[in-house]
Nucleic acid binder design. Structure first.
Lengths: 136, 136
DNA sequence: ATTAAGCTCATACTAAAGTACCAAAATGAC
DNA sequence: GTCATTTTGGTACTTTAGTATGAGCTTAAT
Protein backbone atom coordinates (compact mmCIF):
# COMPACT_ATOMS: atom_id res chain seq x y z
CA UNK A 1 0.00 0.00 0.00
CA UNK A 2 2.60 2.51 1.05
CA UNK A 3 4.82 1.54 -1.83
CA UNK A 4 2.02 2.01 -4.31
CA UNK A 5 1.39 5.55 -3.04
CA UNK A 6 5.10 6.28 -3.11
CA UNK A 7 5.46 5.04 -6.67
CA UNK A 8 2.53 7.12 -7.84
CA UNK A 9 3.92 10.18 -6.12
CA UNK A 10 7.26 9.65 -7.84
CA UNK A 11 5.40 9.19 -11.09
CA UNK A 12 3.56 12.51 -10.77
CA UNK A 13 6.74 14.33 -9.77
CA UNK A 14 8.56 12.88 -12.74
CA UNK A 15 5.78 14.03 -15.03
CA UNK A 16 5.92 17.57 -13.68
CA UNK A 17 9.72 17.71 -14.01
CA UNK A 18 9.48 16.58 -17.59
CA UNK A 19 6.86 19.19 -18.35
CA UNK A 20 9.15 21.90 -17.04
CA UNK A 21 12.08 20.48 -18.96
CA UNK A 22 10.06 20.50 -22.14
CA UNK A 23 9.19 24.17 -21.62
CA UNK A 24 12.82 25.10 -21.08
CA UNK A 25 13.78 23.21 -24.19
CA UNK A 26 11.05 24.91 -26.10
CA UNK A 27 12.31 28.31 -25.04
CA UNK A 28 15.92 27.61 -25.87
CA UNK A 29 15.33 25.75 -29.11
CA UNK A 30 13.11 23.31 -30.94
CA UNK A 31 15.79 20.83 -31.96
CA UNK A 32 15.83 19.03 -28.60
CA UNK A 33 12.14 18.14 -28.51
CA UNK A 34 12.75 14.70 -29.91
CA UNK A 35 15.52 14.07 -27.43
CA UNK A 36 13.23 15.02 -24.57
CA UNK A 37 10.59 12.68 -25.88
CA UNK A 38 13.11 9.88 -25.98
CA UNK A 39 14.17 10.62 -22.40
CA UNK A 40 10.55 10.62 -21.28
CA UNK A 41 9.94 7.35 -23.03
CA UNK A 42 12.94 5.71 -21.38
CA UNK A 43 12.11 7.08 -17.95
CA UNK A 44 8.53 5.92 -17.98
CA UNK A 45 9.56 2.69 -19.53
CA UNK A 46 11.73 1.94 -16.50
CA UNK A 47 9.12 3.30 -14.11
CA UNK A 48 6.70 0.80 -15.57
CA UNK A 49 9.22 -1.98 -15.16
CA UNK A 50 10.02 -1.12 -11.57
CA UNK A 51 6.40 -0.70 -10.56
CA UNK A 52 5.59 -4.06 -12.04
CA UNK A 53 8.55 -5.69 -10.35
CA UNK A 54 7.29 -4.47 -6.98
CA UNK A 55 3.83 -5.81 -7.54
CA UNK A 56 5.33 -9.15 -8.47
CA UNK A 57 7.67 -9.32 -5.54
CA UNK A 58 4.62 -9.28 -3.30
CA UNK A 59 2.60 -11.83 -5.18
CA UNK A 60 5.02 -14.30 -6.66
CA UNK A 61 8.17 -14.30 -4.61
CA UNK A 62 6.30 -15.47 -1.55
CA UNK A 63 4.25 -18.38 -2.76
CA UNK A 64 4.94 -20.27 0.45
CA UNK A 65 2.55 -18.23 2.51
CA UNK A 66 2.11 -20.74 5.30
CA UNK A 67 -1.39 -19.99 6.43
CA UNK A 68 -1.77 -21.05 10.05
CA UNK A 69 -5.48 -20.33 9.83
CA UNK A 70 -5.90 -22.89 7.12
CA UNK A 71 -3.98 -25.46 9.13
CA UNK A 72 -6.58 -25.32 11.88
CA UNK A 73 -9.22 -25.10 9.20
CA UNK A 74 -8.17 -28.50 7.97
CA UNK A 75 -8.03 -29.75 11.56
CA UNK A 76 -4.39 -30.74 11.33
CA UNK A 77 -2.82 -31.32 14.71
CA UNK A 78 0.72 -30.40 15.68
CA UNK A 79 2.05 -33.92 15.23
CA UNK A 80 0.26 -34.43 11.95
CA UNK A 81 1.84 -31.30 10.60
CA UNK A 82 5.28 -32.49 11.65
CA UNK A 83 4.69 -35.80 9.94
CA UNK A 84 3.45 -33.98 6.87
CA UNK A 85 6.67 -32.03 6.68
CA UNK A 86 8.62 -35.24 7.03
CA UNK A 87 6.72 -36.73 4.12
CA UNK A 88 7.34 -33.64 2.01
CA UNK A 89 11.03 -33.91 2.83
CA UNK A 90 11.05 -37.31 1.21
CA UNK A 91 11.42 -39.34 4.39
CA UNK A 92 10.05 -42.84 4.95
CA UNK A 93 7.74 -43.59 7.87
CA UNK A 94 10.59 -45.21 9.72
CA UNK A 95 12.84 -42.19 9.19
CA UNK A 96 10.13 -39.83 10.36
CA UNK A 97 9.71 -41.98 13.44
CA UNK A 98 13.40 -41.82 14.22
CA UNK A 99 13.41 -38.09 13.72
CA UNK A 100 10.48 -37.52 16.08
CA UNK A 101 11.41 -40.34 18.49
CA UNK A 102 8.24 -42.24 17.73
CA UNK A 103 7.52 -45.75 16.52
CA UNK A 104 6.75 -46.44 12.90
CA UNK A 105 3.25 -47.50 13.98
CA UNK A 106 2.55 -44.08 15.37
CA UNK A 107 3.71 -42.46 12.18
CA UNK A 108 1.43 -44.72 10.20
CA UNK A 109 -1.48 -43.69 12.35
CA UNK A 110 -0.69 -40.02 11.84
CA UNK A 111 -0.27 -40.54 8.13
CA UNK A 112 -3.61 -42.29 7.82
CA UNK A 113 -5.37 -39.52 9.73
CA UNK A 114 -3.56 -37.02 7.56
CA UNK A 115 -4.86 -38.65 4.40
CA UNK A 116 -8.44 -38.46 5.64
CA UNK A 117 -8.11 -34.78 6.45
CA UNK A 118 -6.38 -33.93 3.19
CA UNK A 119 -8.51 -36.30 1.14
CA UNK A 120 -5.41 -38.02 -0.25
CA UNK A 121 -4.73 -41.63 -1.09
CA UNK A 122 -0.97 -41.49 -1.36
CA UNK A 123 1.75 -39.51 0.32
CA UNK A 124 2.71 -37.97 -2.99
CA UNK A 125 -0.85 -36.76 -3.37
CA UNK A 126 -0.77 -35.43 0.16
CA UNK A 127 2.32 -33.41 -0.73
CA UNK A 128 0.65 -31.97 -3.79
CA UNK A 129 -2.54 -31.09 -1.94
CA UNK A 130 -0.71 -29.61 1.01
CA UNK A 131 1.25 -27.37 -1.31
CA UNK A 132 -1.92 -26.37 -3.09
CA UNK A 133 -3.55 -25.48 0.20
CA UNK A 134 -0.34 -23.70 1.23
CA UNK A 135 -0.06 -25.82 4.36
CA UNK A 136 3.59 -26.32 3.61
CA UNK B 1 13.00 -15.30 -28.05
CA UNK B 2 10.39 -14.45 -30.65
CA UNK B 3 8.38 -12.53 -28.11
CA UNK B 4 11.35 -10.43 -27.13
CA UNK B 5 12.00 -9.47 -30.75
CA UNK B 6 8.36 -8.69 -31.25
CA UNK B 7 8.19 -6.45 -28.19
CA UNK B 8 11.27 -4.53 -29.25
CA UNK B 9 9.90 -4.08 -32.74
CA UNK B 10 6.66 -2.69 -31.30
CA UNK B 11 8.71 -0.43 -29.08
CA UNK B 12 10.69 1.04 -31.97
CA UNK B 13 7.55 1.51 -34.07
CA UNK B 14 5.85 3.30 -31.19
CA UNK B 15 8.82 5.61 -30.83
CA UNK B 16 8.79 6.51 -34.53
CA UNK B 17 5.06 7.16 -34.49
CA UNK B 18 5.42 9.45 -31.52
CA UNK B 19 8.23 11.35 -33.20
CA UNK B 20 6.03 12.03 -36.19
CA UNK B 21 3.14 13.03 -33.98
CA UNK B 22 5.35 15.50 -32.15
CA UNK B 23 6.39 17.11 -35.42
CA UNK B 24 2.81 17.50 -36.62
CA UNK B 25 1.88 19.02 -33.31
CA UNK B 26 4.80 21.37 -33.46
CA UNK B 27 3.72 22.59 -36.89
CA UNK B 28 0.13 23.15 -35.91
CA UNK B 29 0.73 24.64 -32.49
CA UNK B 30 2.81 24.53 -29.35
CA UNK B 31 0.00 24.04 -26.85
CA UNK B 32 -0.30 20.28 -27.44
CA UNK B 33 3.33 19.46 -26.66
CA UNK B 34 2.56 18.66 -23.06
CA UNK B 35 -0.34 16.44 -24.07
CA UNK B 36 1.92 14.53 -26.40
CA UNK B 37 4.47 14.09 -23.68
CA UNK B 38 1.77 12.75 -21.40
CA UNK B 39 0.67 10.28 -24.07
CA UNK B 40 4.25 9.16 -24.60
CA UNK B 41 4.70 8.71 -20.88
CA UNK B 42 1.58 6.61 -20.53
CA UNK B 43 2.36 4.52 -23.59
CA UNK B 44 5.88 3.67 -22.52
CA UNK B 45 4.72 3.20 -18.98
CA UNK B 46 2.42 0.40 -20.11
CA UNK B 47 5.01 -0.95 -22.51
CA UNK B 48 7.36 -1.22 -19.55
CA UNK B 49 4.71 -2.98 -17.51
CA UNK B 50 3.84 -5.43 -20.22
CA UNK B 51 7.42 -6.22 -21.11
CA UNK B 52 8.19 -6.83 -17.47
CA UNK B 53 5.16 -9.04 -17.03
CA UNK B 54 6.39 -11.20 -19.87
CA UNK B 55 9.86 -11.50 -18.44
CA UNK B 56 8.35 -12.41 -15.10
CA UNK B 57 6.05 -15.01 -16.50
CA UNK B 58 9.21 -16.72 -17.61
CA UNK B 59 11.36 -16.14 -14.55
CA UNK B 60 9.32 -15.59 -11.43
CA UNK B 61 5.74 -16.64 -11.90
CA UNK B 62 7.22 -20.01 -12.72
CA UNK B 63 9.66 -20.46 -9.88
CA UNK B 64 10.02 -23.89 -11.35
CA UNK B 65 12.23 -22.49 -14.06
CA UNK B 66 12.28 -25.70 -16.03
CA UNK B 67 15.88 -25.74 -17.10
CA UNK B 68 16.14 -27.95 -20.13
CA UNK B 69 19.90 -27.80 -19.84
CA UNK B 70 19.77 -29.34 -16.40
CA UNK B 71 17.38 -31.99 -17.57
CA UNK B 72 19.89 -33.23 -20.09
CA UNK B 73 22.57 -32.66 -17.48
CA UNK B 74 20.86 -35.22 -15.30
CA UNK B 75 20.37 -37.43 -18.32
CA UNK B 76 16.61 -37.52 -17.95
CA UNK B 77 14.86 -38.76 -21.05
CA UNK B 78 11.52 -37.50 -22.33
CA UNK B 79 9.57 -40.37 -20.87
CA UNK B 80 11.32 -40.23 -17.55
CA UNK B 81 10.42 -36.58 -17.27
CA UNK B 82 6.79 -37.34 -18.00
CA UNK B 83 6.79 -40.03 -15.35
CA UNK B 84 8.45 -37.63 -12.94
CA UNK B 85 5.66 -35.14 -13.48
CA UNK B 86 3.13 -37.86 -12.89
CA UNK B 87 4.78 -38.71 -9.59
CA UNK B 88 4.83 -35.06 -8.56
CA UNK B 89 1.12 -34.85 -9.36
CA UNK B 90 0.48 -37.52 -6.77
CA UNK B 91 -0.36 -40.31 -9.20
CA UNK B 92 0.31 -44.01 -8.61
CA UNK B 93 2.33 -46.06 -11.05
CA UNK B 94 -0.84 -47.59 -12.42
CA UNK B 95 -2.43 -44.17 -12.92
CA UNK B 96 0.65 -42.86 -14.67
CA UNK B 97 0.57 -45.90 -16.92
CA UNK B 98 -3.06 -45.27 -17.81
CA UNK B 99 -2.34 -41.63 -18.49
CA UNK B 100 0.55 -42.40 -20.82
CA UNK B 101 -0.97 -45.58 -22.26
CA UNK B 102 1.82 -47.74 -20.86
CA UNK B 103 1.90 -50.77 -18.63
CA UNK B 104 2.63 -50.46 -14.95
CA UNK B 105 5.81 -52.46 -15.54
CA UNK B 106 7.13 -49.82 -17.88
CA UNK B 107 6.38 -47.10 -15.38
CA UNK B 108 8.25 -49.04 -12.72
CA UNK B 109 11.25 -49.30 -15.01
CA UNK B 110 11.19 -45.58 -15.68
CA UNK B 111 10.78 -44.83 -12.00
CA UNK B 112 13.72 -47.02 -11.06
CA UNK B 113 15.93 -45.38 -13.67
CA UNK B 114 14.70 -42.01 -12.44
CA UNK B 115 15.75 -42.81 -8.89
CA UNK B 116 19.24 -43.72 -10.01
CA UNK B 117 19.61 -40.48 -11.93
CA UNK B 118 18.18 -38.34 -9.16
CA UNK B 119 19.86 -40.32 -6.41
CA UNK B 120 16.55 -40.90 -4.66
CA UNK B 121 15.21 -43.88 -2.73
CA UNK B 122 11.56 -42.94 -2.66
CA UNK B 123 9.24 -41.09 -4.97
CA UNK B 124 8.67 -38.45 -2.32
CA UNK B 125 12.41 -37.89 -2.21
CA UNK B 126 12.48 -37.73 -6.00
CA UNK B 127 9.86 -34.97 -5.88
CA UNK B 128 11.87 -33.01 -3.36
CA UNK B 129 15.11 -33.38 -5.31
CA UNK B 130 13.51 -32.57 -8.63
CA UNK B 131 12.08 -29.38 -7.18
CA UNK B 132 15.43 -28.52 -5.71
CA UNK B 133 17.10 -29.01 -9.06
CA UNK B 134 14.24 -27.12 -10.72
CA UNK B 135 13.52 -30.00 -13.01
CA UNK B 136 9.85 -29.56 -12.27
C1' DA C 1 -15.39 -36.05 37.47
C1' DT C 2 -16.61 -37.07 32.95
C1' DT C 3 -15.98 -36.17 28.17
C1' DA C 4 -13.63 -35.22 24.01
C1' DA C 5 -9.65 -35.00 21.53
C1' DG C 6 -4.98 -35.95 20.72
C1' DC C 7 -0.91 -38.99 21.09
C1' DT C 8 1.03 -43.25 21.49
C1' DC C 9 1.71 -48.14 20.07
C1' DA C 10 0.54 -52.78 18.50
C1' DT C 11 -1.12 -56.58 15.39
C1' DA C 12 -2.66 -58.28 11.10
C1' DC C 13 -3.63 -57.65 6.76
C1' DT C 14 -3.78 -55.73 1.73
C1' DA C 15 -1.91 -52.92 -1.62
C1' DA C 16 1.47 -50.34 -3.63
C1' DA C 17 6.20 -49.38 -4.42
C1' DG C 18 10.62 -50.61 -5.49
C1' DT C 19 14.62 -53.91 -7.05
C1' DA C 20 16.86 -57.11 -10.03
C1' DC C 21 17.09 -59.31 -14.03
C1' DC C 22 16.09 -60.02 -18.75
C1' DA C 23 14.80 -58.99 -23.57
C1' DA C 24 12.71 -57.19 -27.83
C1' DA C 25 11.35 -53.25 -30.69
C1' DA C 26 12.02 -48.37 -31.91
C1' DT C 27 14.69 -44.43 -32.55
C1' DG C 28 18.35 -41.45 -33.89
C1' DA C 29 23.20 -40.54 -34.83
C1' DC C 30 27.28 -41.65 -37.47
C1' DG D 1 23.64 -50.42 -42.10
C1' DT D 2 25.47 -50.33 -37.47
C1' DC D 3 25.63 -48.84 -32.85
C1' DA D 4 23.98 -46.65 -28.71
C1' DT D 5 20.14 -45.19 -26.40
C1' DT D 6 15.46 -45.16 -25.42
C1' DT D 7 11.27 -47.26 -24.78
C1' DT D 8 8.57 -50.86 -23.76
C1' DG D 9 7.26 -54.98 -21.15
C1' DG D 10 7.76 -59.07 -18.36
C1' DT D 11 8.60 -62.17 -14.02
C1' DA D 12 9.84 -62.76 -9.39
C1' DC D 13 10.89 -60.99 -5.27
C1' DT D 14 11.52 -57.68 -1.15
C1' DT D 15 10.29 -53.69 1.05
C1' DT D 16 7.30 -49.75 2.21
C1' DA D 17 3.02 -47.90 2.50
C1' DG D 18 -1.48 -47.87 3.87
C1' DT D 19 -5.95 -49.77 6.31
C1' DA D 20 -8.53 -51.54 10.09
C1' DT D 21 -9.07 -52.11 14.70
C1' DG D 22 -8.23 -51.85 19.41
C1' DA D 23 -6.33 -49.91 23.47
C1' DG D 24 -3.79 -47.28 27.10
C1' DC D 25 -2.39 -42.66 28.30
C1' DT D 26 -2.51 -37.50 28.59
C1' DT D 27 -4.63 -33.08 28.50
C1' DA D 28 -8.01 -29.45 28.21
C1' DA D 29 -12.68 -28.26 28.53
C1' DT D 30 -17.36 -28.74 30.60
Amino acid sequence: MKKTVFVFAALVIALLCLFKLSKYAHASGDASVELIIAVIAVVFFFIGIRLNKNSFSKDASQPKNIDSKKITEFGLSKRELEVLNGIASGLSNKEIGEKLFLSESTIKTHVSNLFVKLDAKRRTQAIQKAKEMRLI
